[in-house]
């Protein structure tokens, strides 16, 4: 896979202006930003390193230990069977905590972007300080988005890749491992958290600019990120064509993955609802199936091979939203600070 390309680094800020003096060389924006946000940079580095270490631990020793314990359990003939239950539980716990931590990353980024990166600067007036220290507002915003975009993409990208590799290592060997389509495993092991983190960054920045208050932007960034995730989760099953599987009435509904729709297939080939029966075979259900002339079940679902297509489509959708948020942020900033008034008359010098 490839990490999504960063959308938040604008190649064409919609401002007509640029630093003009020929004598001025480029300002040291990266130096300025890292000096300004050193605590955040430190926290981010530590967070990514600690989480990565936990995922590596899980990937290697813990997966191995848990898999061996399950193997032992499966082939156990003694009664009572002495297998390493501790290894199984440790894997499960650490898996759950690290997965949750990976999923929380986009929210951390959004809260920071709204609260600290932009909101606090607008609230305390230090944004204006920067704008009068030689960098234009659009350049200020571009730098403030571009540097975190790189760091967030690299950090989050590394974490989700590790998570995916870690999950794959235990796949089929650990009986209690989460299936690929479980909510947390699906999201933590794909590109969605990366795109969601970038969307959170853009949302926090936009709200910070518009609101001009740190706390409101922090909350707003969190809220928008949550909403975006919810939206993407709702849209997810429809982002890629589903696979249909037909099974007989005796076999019941089959097909493991992200289910979209199930029902019964009639003799004429029409797909109808399951008549409120699910896979029940009570006399009422059989009567109901007979009434519609049901011959089998159908299931529309996403099998495991749809994992990456779904991930990439969902990430793409989020990146489009991110791009729109970034564009809106630049427009708001430009209109408030540097735009000329309409019907402008050029003053003679």
């Amino acid at each position: 896979m490839s990490a999504p390309t960063a959308p938040a680094a604008p190649t064409t800020p919609p401002a007509p202006e640029a630093p003009t003096t020929a004598t001025a060389s480029a300002p040291h924006l990266v130096k300025w930003l890292t000096r300004l946000h050193r605590p955040a940079l430190t926290v981010w580095t530590v967070l990514v390193l600690v989480l990565a270490a936990a995922l590596l631990w899980l990937w290697g020793p813990l997966t191995e230990g848990s898999a061996r314990a399950w193997e032992h359990y499966a082939t156990c003939t003694a009664d009572p069977c002495h297998y390493n239950q501790y290894a199984i539980l440790l894997y499960k716990d650490v898996y759950q905590y690290t997965t949750l931590a990976v999923l929380v990353v986009p929210f951390l980024v959004a809260a920071w972007a709204g609260g600290s990166l932009i909101g606090r600067e607008m609230e305390s007036g230090t944004a204006r300080l920067a704008w009068t220290q030689g960098i234009s507002p659009t350049r200020w915003l571009a730098a403030k988005l571009a540097v975190p975009t790189v760091l967030v993409t690299v950090g989050t990208g590394a974490l989700v890749l590790l998570h995916h590799a870690m999950w794959s290592a235990g796949d089929g060997r650990i009986d209690t491992a989460k299936p690929w389509y479980s909510f947390e495993t699906f999201y933590a092991g794909g590109t969605v958290p990366v795109a969601l983190a970038l969307a959170g960054l853009a949302a926090g920045a936009l709200i910070g600019l518009v609101q001009g208050r740190s706390l409101a932007a922090l909350g707003g960034g969190l809220g928008v990120t949550g909403l975006l995730w919810f939206g993407v989760h709702m849209a997810l099953p429809h982002l890629w064509p589903t696979t249909t599987r037909v099974t007989s009435l005796q076999d019941g509904v089959k097909g493991s993955g992200i289910g979209v729709r199930t029902g019964v297939l009639t003799a004429s080939g029409a797909r109808v609802g399951d008549q409120g029966c699910g896979r029940g075979d009570s006399p009422e259900c059989r009567a109901a199936f007979d009434r519609v002339d049901a011959v089998g079940y159908y299931t529309e679902y996403h099998p495991r091979s749809h994992f990456w297509p779904l991930q990439l489509m969902a990430s793409g959708l989020l990146l489009v939203v991110t791009a729109l948020l970034v564009l809106a942020a630049f427009r708001v900033l430009h209109r408030r600070t540097t735009a000329s008034a309409p019907a402008r008359a050029e003053a003679a010098v």
């Binding site: 704008w131 408030r336 008034a341 008359a345 050029e346």
Partner: peptide, 18 residues
């Protein structure tokens, strides 16, 4: 150059405030 005017112009050192 911190605020955009609603109408009219301001010229600073012979050019746009930005």
């Amino acid at each position: 150059g911190l605020l955009a005017p609603t109408e009219g112009t301001v010229t600073v050192l012979g050019t746009h405030p930005g």
